[in-house]
């Protein structure tokens, strides 16, 4: 199980109408490693994450996630992926606790797990307020709890530190950072910080891989060039 790569993409393409959002992408991410995806807006980063999360079907190529071929065996990876997208996937009129309990029930997790996570992200004080009253930073912390509620071996994170102050970042780091020990795919606009946490770096431009190399061999300048 550990020997097999967590993610294997071979020649993967995805189209929206006539426009190709991803073209002929081949990436392999070994278990436990971090792939950081750079690229300007619209380069295909979110499409890639949704493909890996089994929310989008590929229009070409082969996608294998956690040893299961998608989309044929997509039900076998459900519940083993944590997706943290721009959309928090939280109901605004419910409290953080109610939202998390709802997700815990969907994933067959005990309510104690919710309390544990609320504790660890220091949300206990605001846990019963409707989510719509929370600040963006607090909301992101709740979303992080939602993402790792079911202890998924694979994390897909879309700019996870976007609205967070340093203290909050430190708070969620053990949960979704490198030290969480999970396989991770992280999108980032920050070349320095992104490369620092990466094992592998992927640069997307117009849906194609413009850059793919072990993070140690990638220069910050090469990443910045993607945005030009």
């Amino acid at each position: 199980m550990d020997a097999a790569p967590a993610i294997e993409l071979r020649g993967v393409s995805r189209r929206y109408g006539e426009r190709w959002a991803l073209r002929d992408l081949s990436v392999t991410v070994p278990s436990g490693q971090t792939l950081v995806v750079f690229g300007p807006n619209g380069a295909g980063k979110s499409t890639l994450l949704r493909l890996l999360a089994s929310l989008l079907r590929p229009h070409g190529g082969e996608v294998t996630v956690l040893g299961e071929s998608l989309p044929r065996r997509e039900w076998a990876v459900r519940g083993r992926i944590g997706l943290l997208a721009h959309d928090a996937l939280l109901y605004r009129d419910l409290s953080a606790r109610e939202n998390l309990r709802f997700h815990a029930r969907l994933h067959k997790q005990p309510a104690a797990r919710v309390e544990e996570l609320l504790e660890r992200t220091r949300l206990t004080g605001r846990a019963d307020d409707p989510v719509r009253t929370l600040s963006k930073g607090l909301l992101q912390r709740v979303a992080v709890c939602r993402t790792i509620l079911h202890d998924p071996p694979l994390l897909l994170l879309d700019e996870p530190r976007a609205n967070l102050d340093p203290a909050a970042t430190a708070l969620i780091e053990p949960l979704i950072g490198r030290e969480s020990g999970r396989t991770r795919v992280v999108t980032s606009h920050d070349p320095v910080g992104g490369l620092a946490e990466a094992d592998l770096a992927l640069g997307l431009r117009d849906g194609r891989a413009a850059l793919l190399a072990p993070a140690g061999e990638v220069d910050v300048v090469a990443v910045e060039a993607l945005y030009r």
Binding site: G11, S13, R15, G17, E18, R23, H59, G60, G61
Partner: peptide
């Protein structure tokens, strides 16, 4: 580019995987 249309706008062949 093809605008919004009620009719199918993409040829069935084009919808097949690239290769």
């Amino acid at each position: 580019p093809i605008g919004r249309s009620a009719a199918p706008t993409i040829a069935p062949e084009a919808a097949k995987p690239l290769g």
